[in-house]
Design a protein around this nucleic acid. Structure first.
Length: 138
DNA sequence: GCCAACGTTGGC
DNA sequence: GCCAACGTTGGC
């Protein structure tokens, strides 16, 4: 079991949108590192959902319900992939980037070190720490 | 709205 | 293969 975090701009596609749709194909990733992370996701892996821009906080937990497949929104012929994500639950208390920054155990995650990466792995300890801060259990 | 950080592109 | 220029993302 691996743990992940994805970022999304709620102006484009936010948590509420995902909940309404029940599930979504996580398309549009155009970054090799992020793509490799998508490819490494296994069915059932938990994925934290982070809002960039508005909010800047972890707002919910999703899970992988379909492992990677070709991203059909690709127009440039590139070898891009998507996964299917399904919302599991909203966190009780959203965890802001500031709180994450202020937490020593989380100082190595990409969210802090590489703000640009939109799909990133988390260590189990990091995942658990964030859930604890969110006062939420998986 | 600005700008820093980063990834990608393209000229050499 | 290097690196400058450019575009995009995302925090502030």
């Amino acid at each position: 079991m691996n743990y992940w975090l994805v970022k999304s701009d709620p102006d484009t596609y936010g948590w509420e949108h995902l909940v309404k749709e029940k599930k979504t194909d996580w398309t549009g990733v155009r970054n090799y590192q992020a793509r490799n992370n998508l490819k490494a996701m296994k069915k059932g892996d938990p994925v934290l959902f982070y809002h960039s821009g508005e909010g800047m906080d972890v707002v919910g937990i999703t899970k992988v319900t379909k492992e990677f497949f070709p991203d059909t929104t690709t127009k440039d012929g590139g070898d891009w992939v998507a996964v299917e994500l399904t919302p599991v639950k909203k966190v009780k208390k959203s965890v802001t980037l500031n709180e994450i920054r202020a937490t020593k155990q989380l100082s190595n995650i990409h969210l802090v070190r590489n703000a640009r990466l939109s799909v990133m792995p988390l260590q189990k300890e990091e995942f658990d720490t964030i859930l604890e801060m969110a006062e939420t259990k998986l």
